[in-house]
Nucleic acid binder design. Structure first.
Length: 805
RNA sequence: GGGCGCAUAGCUCAGCGGGAGAGCGCCCGCUUCACACGCGGGAGGUCGCUGGUUCGAUCCCAGCUGCGCCCACCA
């Protein structure tokens, strides 16, 4: 074996081999009937994978590899998402940079352009997953715009139509003036902004005084239809029911009372603009007020704004403020910092606008999903996220599914000249109501999450009743980031139950968010992102996977290169101890028949570690598993076992060689899900391997390993006592031999003193005796705790004895 | 403003009711035939603050302070 382990030479080779040999395919290595299925959260085709994807990929790959090795029929479904607005945003910005625009080239050419853009990014993404060693079923790559997938999306829409869940309504929505589309609440991000708060006087119509209202958007005064105060606000008791005159347009509007008004803010009087503010829209609906619109879809003042038409809002604001100032209606202006909704893709300020959109009524469809969560047929991990998911379903609002974009799935909705609406798929020949053949398709496209919601079963062929669907649905695990629980995961659950007849998975893992080392969010725009490919290039995929798994436990974690470095050390250590064993076991066959105590010990230790590690995988506690694997390899396998058998290996002891190979095999099996490459490379050099490690099972357990295996623990204790006190306690011949091999007695570092150790033990004995003398402790503490304390006391006394204390 | 979470060694984090831990960094000693990405040893912590529960609290409860993420229609 080469003296130095170089991951960059080894890893790509195995990635190619595994895939070429079909070992990434669904069902590879299958030895039992049970399936284990994960559909990867389809990354957006807009760009490359980031550290969060690498972390999530590592988690999922561990689970897939672990189940594959145990003989499950595994399927890890790959693919990507067309990411409607996100992709349109990227391509649109490219066009702007090229001096043209979406509108200039037209819809058809634009969509063509997007497809071309995707060919590259799709390849990049799958290449990154391959380089991480992710054992996805790459032969089954799916895209949410594939023909078959589009078919599923259309059927879903028509299904909702047939169910009566779809409706079209004129409501106030979040409008992005850059993309000129409605977006959902979930696509709005709030950012702090510095505005001016303008206090304007609205005189009473009868000329007796005025009410002052505060607004950050004076231009919307033109669309005011009322002034509202809180019902219990004593200051305005007499004003309610009277009429005030709106500045600039000089229109008389009522003063009304509504408890949505916050009496603490501003003057406690709120101008009501149903056309341009969500709260006002709600108040307007309650009081049956008209809706006026003075701002258009492009964010500028529209023709309703009269002389201000065509101005930007900022210009209009100034014009209105000037008007107020001239007529002494301006009380004051003051700086005001507040959170403003912006488009999550382009960060343009959201314009609340009234527009006609398609909605899904969520009252019915959410119910079975809520039941599945409450009954724990679907469990979120950690538990706190389960509670959040339940709450989200309880409070779920209706879903605005139409977007005024060009890139996406066009709605299967047709209008006839008489205004009838038909939704069917395949496309209808004629209007469902009047039979007219003159149909025009709705130009809008669907919310990108509408298609993502179908991911677990549309990738398996739904709505066709395919063999894949019957075999691999429902799946098992979904692992994803916290922020898309409502956007994606909950929607997969309710649509899965509704369309595919069952929950799509049983366990949802919400993994940690990887922050930049300085604690800020990892983001391209902040320049705080770290490319997983860079980390892989520097330390290897195995090391990167190890590091990310170690970082996966907390809710938010700062990226730590140290954790990756630890992974790299583990890979190197494994390589080196394998060199030791392989160089000294030529001609030997692995044979796990324990002879000496150190052999019984390591085999028992490996069995115990396997149980602990698998239990941690099953709990999705990846960090705990990885920690166990590290100390198993370094402390137990290398520092004690390998050191203990060295003399026998050098002496060509055939029993030591046979057991060493058997023990090494088991160590590799345990480590493979975390570090697949280095383990497979070593495995390939072991004698007479029938199968690749990637599909190899843990050998039948042998209970003989467990017998008398604690002998080596006594050696470790003896070394510890000797190190601290300088006194070597009595040991048996075997134990003496091992101690000499691992820590030759003439080299036993003796820093402590016998007296110091005796003093320490006396203190422990006193503490322990004190506890056991405490009647309330003995009476109240659990029996095993009391028993444990008695055992500790006995051990301290024995050690004291051995030291002659 | 609401929800969730975090405050433990210089750094990144485990532990979560009965002896303060790991990795990195730092200091000392080791060119011993697997490995200096190593081996052996060591220094370094009133476990954020204040109360409470308990025989006993880093661990449970309450409040406070600081921080992070998610969510949110205060004009």
């Amino acid at each position: 074996m080469e003296p130095t382990y170089r991951p960059e030479d080894v890893e790509p080779r195995w990635q190619e081999a595994w895939e070429a040999e079909g070992l990434y395919r669904a069902g590879a290595g299958r030895r039992r009937d049970e399936t284990f299925v994960i559909a990867v959260p389809p990354p957006n085709v807009t760009g490359a994978l980031h550290m969060g994807h690498a972390l999530n990929g590592s988690l999922q790959d561990v689970l897939i590899r672990w189940h594959r090795m145990r003989g499950f029929d595994t399927l890890w479904q790959p693919g990507y998402d067309h990411a409607g607005i996100s992709t349109q945003n990227v391509v649109e910005k490219q066009l702007v940079a090229e001096g043209t625009s979406r509108k200039e080239i037209g819809r058809e050419a634009f969509v063509e352009r997007v497809w071309r853009h995707l060919e590259e990014t799709g390849r990049t993404i799958m290449g990154q997953y391959r380089r991480l060693g992710a054992s996805l079923a790459y032969d089954r790559e799916r895209f949410t715009m594939d023909d078959a997938y589009v078919e599923a999306v259309m059927r879903f829409f028509v299904h909702c139509w047939d169910r009566g869940w779809l409706y079209r309504a004129n409501r106030i929505v979040n409008w992005c003036p850059f993309h000129e589309t409605a977006i959902s609440d979930l696509e709005v991000v709030h950012e702090p902004m510095d505005d001016m708060l303008t206090y304007a006087r609205y005189p009473f119509a009868d000329g007796s005084g005025a009410i002052t209202v505060a607004t950050v958007r004076p231009a919307t005064i033109l669309a005011d239809v009322a002034v509202a105060v809180h019902p219990e606000d004593g200051r305005y008791r007499d004003a309610v029911g009277r009429e005030v005159v709106v500045p600039f347009v000089e229109r008389g509007v009522p003063v009304l009372a509504d408890d949505l008004v916050d009496p603490e803010f501003g003057t406690g009087a709120l101008k009501i603009t149903p056309g341009h503010d969500p709260t006002d829209f709600e108040i307007g609906t309650r009081h049956d007020l008209p809706v006026l619109t003075v701002i258009g879809p492009d964010g500028r003042m529209n023709e309703e704004a009269g002389e201000l038409a065509g101005l930007s809002q900022k210009e209009a604001d100034e014009a209105v403020v000037a008007w107020l100032r001239e007529r002494d209606r301006l009380e004051k202006r003051e700086p005001h910092r507040h959170n403003v909704g912006t488009c999550e893709r382009c960060h343009t300020r959201i314009e609340p606008l009234v527009s006609l959109q398609w909605w899904i009524a969520m009252e019915e469809p959410r119910k079975p999903a809520l039941a599945a969560l409450v009954e724990r047929r679907v469990r979120y991990h950690p538990e706190s996220q389960h509670a959040f998911a339940v709450r989200s379903l309880e409070e779920i609002p209706d879903w605005n599914v139409s977007r005024q974009l060009w890139w996406g799935h066009q709605l299967p909705i047709w209008y006839c000249p008489d205004g009838h609406v038909t939704s069917s798929w395949p496309p209808p020949e004629a209007c469902g109501e009047c039979g007219s053949g003159e149909l025009e398709r709705d130009p809008d496209v669907l919310d990108t999450w509408f298609s993502s919601a179908l991911w677990p079963y549309a990738t398996l062929g739904w709505p066709e009743d395919t063999e894949d669907l019957r075999r691999y649905y429902p799946g098992h695990v979904n692992s994803t980031a916290r922020e898309i629980i409502r956007l994606w995961v909950n929607r997969m659950i309710w649509t899965g139950i509704e369309l595919a007849g069952d929950i799509p998975f049983t366990d949802v893992i919400i993994h940690s968010t990887v922050l930049a080392p300085d604690g800020r969010r990892m983001s391209k725009s902040l320049g705080t992102g770290i490319d997983p490919l860079d980390t892989i290039a520097e330390h290897g995929a195995d090391a990167t996977r190890y590091g990310l798994l170690k970082m996966s436990s907390t809710q938010d974690v700062r990226f730590s290169e140290g954790a990756v470095g630890e992974g790299r050390k583990l890979a190197t250590k494994l390589w080196n101890v394998s060199r030791l064993i392989l160089a000294n076991t030529e001609g030997a066959e692995p044979d796990p028949r324990p002879q000496a105590v150190e052999e019984r010990w390591i085999l028992a230790r490996l069995d115990a570690a396997r149980a602990a590690v698998e239990e941690a995988w099953a709990r999705f506690d990846f960090a705990a598993a990885v920690k166990e694997l590290y100390s198993l390899t370094f402390d137990d396998f290398c520092d004690w076992y390998a050191e203990a058998i060295k003399p026998r290996l050098y002496g060509d002891d055939p029993a030591a060689a046979a057991t060493a190979l058997a023990a090494l095999e088991r160590l590799l099996l345990l480590l493979h899900p975390v570090m697949p490459h280095v383990t497979e490379e070593i495995w390939s050099r072991l004698p007479a391997r029938a199968a690749r490690l990637i599909v190899s099972p843990w050998p039948e357990p042998d209970e003989r390993f467990a017998s008398d295996a604690d002998a080596l623990e006594r050696v470790r204790d003896a070394a510890e006592i000797a190190r601290r006190s300088g006194v070597l306690v009595e040991l048996g011949a075997d134990e003496r031999r091992i101690l000499d091999a691992v820590v030759p007695s003439e080299q036993l570092p003796v820093n402590g003193s016998r007296e110091g150790e005796v003093a320490r033990l006396r203190k422990e004995v006193a503490r322990s005796e004190g506890m056991l003398a405490n009647e309330r402790f003995v009476a109240n503490a659990p029996p095993e705790v009391v028993e444990g304390e008695r055992e500790k006391l006995a051990r301290y006394r024995r050690e004291l004895d051995a030291l002659g204390g």
